[in-house]
Write a protein that binds this DNA or RNA. Sequence first.
DNA 1: TTGTAAGCGTTATCAC
DNA 2: GTGATAACGCTTACAA
Lengths: 351, 351
Amino acid sequence: MPTKPASTERDSSSSHVTVHDVARVAGVAIGTVSRVVNGAPTVTKAVRDRVESAIAELGWTPSVAAQAMRGVSAHVVGFIFSDIRNPLYAAMVKGAEDVLSEHGYMLMIASSDGRSEREVALINLFKRRRADGLLFTVEEESNAEVRRCIEASAYPVIMLEREMDAAMGSVGAAHMDGTRHAARHLLSLGHRRIALISGGRTNKVGRDRLAGFVQAHQQAGIPLDESLLRLDSFASDYGFRETQLLLDMKNRPTAIVAAGMHLLHGVLRAIRIKGLQIPRDLSLIASNDSPLAELATPSIDVIRYDAYDLGQKAAQLLLHRMNNKNLTASPRIEIPTEFILRESCAAPPVV
Amino acid sequence: MPTKPASTERDSSSSHVTVHDVARVAGVAIGTVSRVVNGAPTVTKAVRDRVESAIAELGWTPSVAAQAMRGVSAHVVGFIFSDIRNPLYAAMVKGAEDVLSEHGYMLMIASSDGRSEREVALINLFKRRRADGLLFTVEEESNAEVRRCIEASAYPVIMLEREMDAAMGSVGAAHMDGTRHAARHLLSLGHRRIALISGGRTNKVGRDRLAGFVQAHQQAGIPLDESLLRLDSFASDYGFRETQLLLDMKNRPTAIVAAGMHLLHGVLRAIRIKGLQIPRDLSLIASNDSPLAELATPSIDVIRYDAYDLGQKAAQLLLHRMNNKNLTASPRIEIPTEFILRESCAAPPVV
DNA sequence: TTGTAAGCGTTATCAC
DNA sequence: GTGATAACGCTTACAA
């Protein structure tokens, strides 16, 4: 005990006070201590009081590890995403945490950096730690290795913004609606060459956005030029580069839909450099909403959805799965998207 | 075992395969299995092979809970902050995670929402879970309850952007430098009435910023009008409200320093509504950098620092503390701030 | 080199 | 009602 000159009131090093210590101080058996903390009804008021004061005196709290060995859940949920620096994930995490902490669960987070091997490693880590469930934004929905790993782990998994298996629970935003709405808006303004910059070729978000985009064109009877689809990344740099390429085309688009949190930054930079005026020379719609979209000059129309709510819903679904192991609830929840009209869209320039 | 109709390849419910199962399959004693996984040198190649193939066959991984009971660390670090939706915390978390995961640690995160009672509860939760260490951005540095709780928990704690106790490790940005630099820049442009909007009255960030601001004025021999100090919150709404109040003053400031991630959003909104031109009518400096600051029109000068790096440094310091319990290393690390000149500052308007 | 057995701190099942 | 006591799955002396 060479830690401190006995500053705090209690004697024992406080490091490892156990039921036995409490039992000794209270003058009861360890079983009784356990009964008291677990609220067993068969305990005399007198004994309960003695035990409780002993607990308070020693500052004892049951070891989660020891409880876990007796089959008591550690009340831990894992959350795997690519990178928490994406504000959408941060909001989802906060939403999930708010719901889970209310039910006594804590959140263990881990970044995959978009690598499937890392995802597999993380799932195994959570398994070793006997996590009670998993919130997961998988990188590639079709990855066989990851899928096998999840199945082998056999605990409740809820996918966020992804969909792997019909049976697995999932929560996601209505990206098809949102993107369809955005494209329809541009088409109705008279745009005929609309570019879509986005990522997620290997997941539901990307698929739904493309589907909505295509649908809007089909319903309007407007052919879609595939050379205007840039669907390989959500990164700001990708938005920057592809916007430059798009604007250098002979027959360049008159509008851009930039669907991905970080894309707007790169897209705007490229437009600035090119010296184009929004919306006079080029219309623009982004997703999701952000301070940048709201306060850029001009302000940017966006497809918005509530990532915090998405995280909450996912946590609720997971709680449900964890409690009713066999009962299969609504397997998928969809969060609505809304279209925010601002100043970044106008009729296309006359050529 | 009413979980599934025996879908996966292996027989046993996979849920609870233990050392005993592995030992049985490999035809050895449980001690030997343990030796193999823990890399004891005293194991025959033949036996090791048999055990390893048994492990692979059964897909066994040692239970962290059982290991924890034997005194093996669970390799968990807790991280307490107010709200992960602040991009600065998200970056710190990612920085810390990248360092910690390389050393086999996982991160358990928890939001305090700025409430000290919640901080106390969380510290106790981490204690119950036998976390190996704690990264912490405490709300009120002087809170006695929290301080006592940390001392009682007796595990390594590193403060991020805070400072509680000289002995406790801490990592923070050089906010005094940054704010002094910003104020000096404005003073040198001729500004004599500069407002400071920021939060953190109860912590080092706020104190350092104010100190730097005051220093710059003193060194320039310019008196500082205390009515221009608005130091009660980092929230966007606060920035909005206080900016409106500042701009409504009879003798209104000619420049504003908005030090706090979310403040810029509110400040810009208020300036827009007021119909003022930056930098012609009003100069503005923000902190930290953001896509909004970079791409606003005009772009905004900022005090920038690397929160990801801050998180990394904190994790390294914590690792050091966790490994050399008694060795006391450099107790405080400071991250530099840099001043990014853009288009939001000019000489004050002539009255 | 490998097997045996004693704990780690709980909870739960017995007796009393 | 309460006190012993046997697990839980692992690591680690100590025996063989």
